[in-house]
Amino acid sequence: MAAARSFLGVPVYKPRVAFFELSSCEGCQLQLLNNEDTLPDFLSLVEVVNFREAMTGGTDDYEIAFVEGSVTRGDEIERLREVRGKAKTLVALGSCACFGGVNQLKNRFDPDWVKKEVYGDRQVESERAKPLEDIVTVDLRILGCPINKKEVEGIMVNLAIGKEIKTPKYPVCMECKANGNTCLFDLGEPCLGPITRAGCNSCCPNGRAGCWGCRGPAEDGNLAQMTVIMERYGFSKETIIDRLECFGGFSDYASQLRTIKLKNSS
């Protein structure tokens, strides 16, 4: 690993960091190891003391813990509490950790049916999928499914030099327009860009696919108006709710919406 870094002649803070996963696909951690070009620089900013996906062994002496995944089992609750106890800073890494992620889709179904569909007759423990925040205090959230490595790189630099860490408060539309995309509504497709927090560089609309809200709500997002617009463009209530429910960032509003009758609903 490269030597300790300095910025403008001043040695920078090099935190001991650890990575853990709960119920997840481990894709966010994998993202961290992507981008080989910048990986040495990235690793020189931190001292990785525990990272099952990237190293063997590891210690419990860390300052910052990055936790990926949602909480679905009792032993995960215990583990999370233990990590929280040891870490000065706990970072929720990715949509599962922040909102429950794709895992929380099961929360809308009967839990016994879900278990039977997936595991058949095997006896497994699998409760409602919850974000870390339901169990412990989270200090920083890194959004996205998966997370955006560039954004994490920026966060690491700011941690090292002691600069405030900011995520955009505005929605994906800002990035989408800056990228010169034709709005998907003009092309007849739904998109949650107007209410979803930016920071992914409008990843999905750039590829002509509508946003599914993986980064959760933008600040001051106008959910009620978004629903009116989706309806006006002819999308059914089920289409709207499916999108809103996908990653868990809008789950409260989505369940509220279930109880409201919309014009296009069957």
Binding site: P171, C173, M174, K177
Partner: peptide, 24 residues
């Protein structure tokens, strides 16, 4: 929606923010 689209598609809107970033 507070989405900013009106300013982004406007030929005369010129407001901006400035961000400083340090390389990795």
């Amino acid at each position: 929606l507070a989405c900013g689209t009106c300013a982004n598609v406007c030929p005369t809107c010129y407001c901006y923010s400035v961000e400083e970033t340090v390389s990795l």
